[in-house]
């Protein structure tokens, strides 16, 4: 089954992973900007990272027929440095017209601090000003519930935010309902130990339905599995869910959400008797 990984950090992966993903049915991915494992010391460090996301990774992906998109921001962990964050936010518009940029992300909270909240709100301003979609990181472990509720407060306080153009990622059993009830999209991250397992992601689909939900691997430099989405597909099949439902979660939903971005010009693989749809057709 063709699938789209809506959240995967390919800068952390070797080229062989692109090949493996292509073999397993992946046709495209979106890569949010994130923490590199260390704090960068200058705006130029981020400028180079954004060049990697907008110039290098699309070329690596294209070698295996994969379409690569990305999101730009300074992540919540480095947002503790407010002055650097403001420099990065001011620089981001240099890249917004690059053909694979879908919006602002993954912005959010990490330890739910005042500085993180300030920088989050300033990212929202940027997204509104440039009419960008938003991809949101919610905190880990014991901070997730509190941080997700704080993020939803900040989003719903701002009447300019179009909720159908916001994806709140890393939802789990205790946060998914809040995200969906407020009209946002939700992403489930399939991690080996933290976040969701493929089995629990299937449970959440069974409990909440597939509308506005998607799954991702978030494959990065930590313990993670870039082929976690096929694991989810297999688990759904083992539970005898119809192919149409599985496809909705792993393919139709990501494309429907991303098609709201002007830069999303995804070309599906041709299927027998069906002409390939372009990004414009998908938006329609």
């Amino acid at each position: 089954m063709d699938y789209f990984d809506p959240h995967i950090h390919m800068v952390s992966r070797i080229t062989d992973d692109y090949e493996t993903l292509a073999k397993m049915g992946c046709v495209g991915m979106s890569e949010p900007a994130f923490w590199a494992g260390f704090d960068r010391c200058s705006v130029d460090g981020f400028r180079d990272y954004f060049r990697q996301l907008t110039e290098i990774e699309p070329k690596r992906a294209a070698q295996y027929g994969l379409q690569h998109y990305c999101w730009l921001c300074i992540n919540a962990k480095e947002a503790e440095n407010v002055s650097l964050s403001r420099e990065v936010i001011a620089m981001i518009p240099e890249f917004l017209d690059k053909p694979n940029v879908l919006g602002i992300g993954e912005i959010g909270l990490n330890k739910n601090t005042r500085n993180e909240a300030i920088v989050f709100v300033e990212h929202l301003e940027l997204a509104v000003k440039f009419d960008q979609q938003i991809l949101i990181h919610t905190p880990h472990l014991e901070d997730k519930y509190q941080g997700t509720r704080m993020i939803l407060d900040m989003l719903t306080d701002d009447s300019r935010i179009d909720r159908s153009r916001v994806l709140v990622d890393h939802v789990e059993e205790h946060t998914v309902r809040h995200v969906l009830e407020e009209g946002f999209w939700g992403g489930m991250t399939l991690y080996p130990t933290t976040k969701c397992t493929p089995q629990r992601a299937c449970d959440i689909i069974e409990m909440y339905g597939a509308e506005r939900l998607m799954v991702n691997s978030a494959g990065d430099w930590g313990p993670s599995k870039p082929t976690a989405v096929p694991d989810f597909i297999l688990e759904m099949r083992r539970r005898r869910h119809p192919e149409s439902l599985i496809r909705q979660v792993v393919y139709d939903n990501p494309l429907k959400f991303f098609s709201q971005s002007q830069n999303f010009r995804f070309t599906p693989r041709e299927t027998t008797g069906e002409p390939a749809r372009t990004g414009a057709a998908l938006r329609a």
Binding site: A117, Q146, M154
Partner: peptide, 22 residues
């Protein structure tokens, strides 16, 4: 079980952190 391992949410957090809502 998730809630057992979660910090509580305080809906007055914006006052506590002095973050003004829009």
């Amino acid at each position: 079980v998730q809630m057992v391992f979660s910090r509580p949410y305080d809906d007055t957090w914006q006052n506590a952190l002095k973050v003004a809502p829009r």
